[in-house]
Design a protein around this nucleic acid. Sequence first.
RNA 1: GUGGGUGUAGCUCAGCUGGUAGAGCGCUGGAUUGUGGUUCCAGUGGCCGAGGGUUCGAACCCCUCCACCCACCCCA
Length: 411
Amino acid sequence: MIRAVKGTRDILPPDSAAWNHLESVARRVFRSYRYGEIRTPILEETQLFARGVGQETDIVTKEMYTFDDRDGTSLTLRPEATASVIRAYLEHRLDQRPGVQKLYYLGPMFRRERPQKGRYRQFYQIGAEAIGSESPAVDAEVIEMVIDLLRQAGLQGFTLLLNSVGCPVCRPRYIQELRRELDKVSEQMCLDCQRRALTNPLRVLDCKVEADQPIIDRLPSILDHLCETCRTHFALVRRYLEERDIAYELRPRLVRGLDYYMRTTFEVVHGALGAQNSVLGGGRYDGLAESLGSRIPAPGIGFSIGEDRLVMALEGAWSDPLDVFIAPLGEAAAGQAARLARPLRERGFSVETGSEARLKRALELANKLGARFALIVGDDEIASERYTLKNMQSGEQAALPLDAIIERLKT
RNA sequence: GUGGGUGUAGCUCAGCUGGUAGAGCGCUGGAUUGUGGUUCCAGUGGCCGAGGGUUCGAACCCCUCCACCCACCCCA
C-alpha cells in the first residue's frame, strides 16, 4: 500500500474541526488588530531562504526540500514564511503604502528532519509580520496579539519567554566575550557544548544537560552587553508589556536558530508537548531585507505559531455536532425530506438525510452520528405537515410544523 | 545523521518454556409491524511488518531489511 510520506500526515474529521476552529479564532484576532492575510507561494527560489534564513543555519544546510526546475533554477519548498513575506513586501513596494504593513499567513511549511512528537516534515504555521517600523511599541503589540490569540484559542498554562539578542553592533562583541569565557570552562562541559563553543557559542546557552547549568549560569549574559540603542529598545518593550499586563519571563539564554533575528526575541512554551515544548517563536528582523540584497529597508517583527503543536496542547477535542438527521419513511418521503432539509440548512443547521428502509435503522444511525435531533418524515407527517422531531438525548418527541422545528433546533 | 522502543483484526491489545492465532471495542445482521442508546444472539474480519535462517514444526529463537514512535541535533 502507498502510505503518506514520512513526516506528513492526514488530518481527518473530527480532528480537522479543531484545526478549523483554531484557524477561525486566529483570523478573527488578526482582523481585530487589522492584519490582512497574505498568501505567498509554497515554492520559492532557493536563494531566498539561503540568504534570508541564513547560510549557516541547520534549516538551510540540511533541512530544505530543494530541487532543480526544468530550466535549472533551484527551487525550495518553503521551510518558513518570513522570508517570503519580506520578499513580497519588497517586490510589491509595500513600503510605499501608508503605515505599518500588518500581514498574517497560515499554511504548510516543509523541513526534512527526523520526525518526532510535535515535529513533522510538513507542518503548519500561523504567523504574522508587522513591517516598516523599528518602534518597540510595535514589538509590544505583536506580542500582545499573539498572547491574545492563544487565550482566545483556549490555551492554558503557557509561558512567554522574552529576550533581546542585540544587533550587528553589539552581538559580535558579546559573542567574542562569550568565546573568551568558554575557552576557560568549555572542557568541563558536555561534548555537545565543547563542539558548540567552537561552531556556534550562542547555542551553548541552550544546553539542557543538567551538569552544565551552573557553568552556563556564570557565563556572561547578553543583556549586560547590549549597546545603547538595543538597551533602550528592550527597556521600552518590557515597559509596554508590563503596561499591558502581559506576564513574561526574562530569558537571557533564549537563542533563536534563525540568523535574521535581532533585538527582541520571544517564545511561548507549554508542558505536555514532549521535547518540542515550543508553541511559537518570533522576533525582530530589521536587517533581513538588506541581507536579501534590497536597498529598501524593511524593519519588522513577527512570530509564527506551530499549529500542529498548538492543536496538540489544546485540550478537549473540538467537535462539530450534527444538528438534525432526517429519517424519511418510504419513497414518497425522500422528496419531502429534501424539501425540509433546505430551509434548515439555509438557517445554518447541519443536516443529514438518511435512506434507511426501517425507522429503527435510521435512528440507530442518527445515534451513531451523534445527531442532536432526528426528524421523522412518514405518511402521517406528510399528510398533516407536522413532522416528528425527536430529541436524541432526552428521547422526547413531538409532531411540529416547520417553523416550530426551527425554533426547537435553536436550543 | 545518531541512539532507544514498538510492529498480531479497522482501533486498543493478549498470546506462558517454539505445536500454523484470541479478547474488548468497532462494523454487519437478528430478537417480525414507525422509535435509537442498555441487553442478548449470530456474523465479518489477520500471508502475526517483509525476506532469509534454525527446527519435524516459528507470531514466538537467530540474521537482514522496512515502517512507525520517542529522544539527540535543531526547531514550529
